[in-house]
């Protein structure tokens, strides 16, 4: 692990510790959960350059699978979490295998179509999923692991700690994936698919694998989300949510996986504060999107980089 990674992780851990002092536990938990969902999208979108508009389907499959188990069986958390991760991972593998052979708009539209299929399947399968009303009566498990004493997850602080530990752990794994040979193959394929193939990389297999892993972590984020408000709302699967996840990655910056959780936090807090200012807040939001695209393509991380000389001047310190 490089020093830059250590510093980034330190900042992330610090933010997780400080967040509850500034925000309610539910908002802080939600930021972390969407931070994980955005980070899970990063290997596909950021490293692979594949603009998947099907991320909400993966998030949703995880949430509905885990949520259904929690609503119907008093199991330790481990099982719903594994089930959600596995279901989303399997679907992501199938979706990835069918989509990665198509490029640009075809790829976007295929992932979008898969997202719509999942949405309508969940919408129609009312007896199991609750349809339009969402999956209700999800109970947060009384135990985390089999044979261990119980924990009261209905206490907001306990739930936040659980989310923080799981999200941080998953983020470490995602970081390993991004830095692994798989990440290098994905990056090479993004730069020049033909050359990467000529070197001997099986790029479609690598891209499918990236999808599968993205699915596993999106699924975990989905299970945590199902526990957050004790319901799994169907809008979480809507394609708009896929678009939001892409935008979170972008707003944070495509250059680093550390941008994804920052992007998720900025995105959610920005919407919350704009909606208090003006009923027509999506107009302001649209202007911000245009502004970011035209002037700040590196996202918040680039903004940080631009501020750095100014900060240094302000503190009067020389470069160490």
């Amino acid at each position: 692990m490089t020093r830059s990674r250590m510093v980034g992780l330190g900042v992330l851990a610090g933010s997780i510790l400080v967040a509850p002092a500034l925000l309610s536990f539910s908002t802080a938990s939600e930021l972390l959960i969407f931070g994980l969902a955005a980070a899970a999208a990063y290997p596909v979108i950021g490293v692979g350059g594949l603009f998947s508009f099907g991320q909400a389907a993966l998030f949703g499959i995880g949430g509905y699978t885990g949520g259904w188990l929690m609503a119907h069986a008093a199991l330790p958390l481990l099982w719903p979490l594994l089930a959600g991760a596995a279901a989303a991972g399997l679907f992501a593998t199938a979706m990835g295998a069918m989509c990665v052979r198509r490029s640009s708009i075809y790829f976007i539209m295929l992932t979008f179509a898969f997202n719509q299929l999942v949405y309508y399947a969940i919408y129609s399968w009312r007896g199991v999923t609750g349809g339009q009303d969402g999956l209700a009566d999800i109970a947060r498990p009384a135990r985390l692991l089999p044979y261990l004493p119980g924990v009261n997850l209905d206490r907001p602080v306990n739930f936040y700690v659980l989310v923080a530990v799981i999200v941080f752990g998953c983020f470490l794994l995602l970081l390993r994936i991004v830095d692994s040979p798989l990440g290098r193959v994905l990056d090479a394929a993004k730069q020049n698919a033909r050359r990467a193939a000529a070197i001997g990389y099986d790029i479609h297999r690598a891209q499918t694998l990236a999808f599968a892993l993205s699915g596993v972590f999106s699924g975990i984020a989905g299970v945590l989300y199902a526990m957050l408000y004790w319901i799994m709302p169907i809008d979480a699967v809507a394609w708009v949510n896929s678009g939001n996840l892409v935008f979170m990655v972008l707003i944070g910056g495509l250059g680093s996986i550390f941008g994804a959780p920052i992007g998720a936090a900025v995105f959610i807090l920005l919407q919350d504060s704009l909606s208090l200012v003006w009923d027509r807040w999506p107009l302001l939001f649209g202007l911000i999107v245009i502004g970011v695209v035209l002037f700040l393509q590196g996202g918040v991380l680039e903004l940080g980089g631009m501020l750095r000389p100014a900060l240094r001047r302000a503190s009067g310190a020389d470069a160490p």
């Binding site: 510093v7 500034l22 550390f258 680039e302 903004l303 940080g304 900060l311």
Partner: peptide, 27 residues
């Protein structure tokens, strides 16, 4: 390079944190 990147990440992370705090709803 790595060291420079590290500082950059630290600072940009901090900037992100400041921005985040600034955006927080008044409690």
């Amino acid at each position: 390079m790595t060291t420079a990147l590290g500082r950059r990440r630290l600072l940009s992370g901090a900037a992100g944190g400041v921005l985040t705090a600034g955006l927080c709803l008044p409690r």
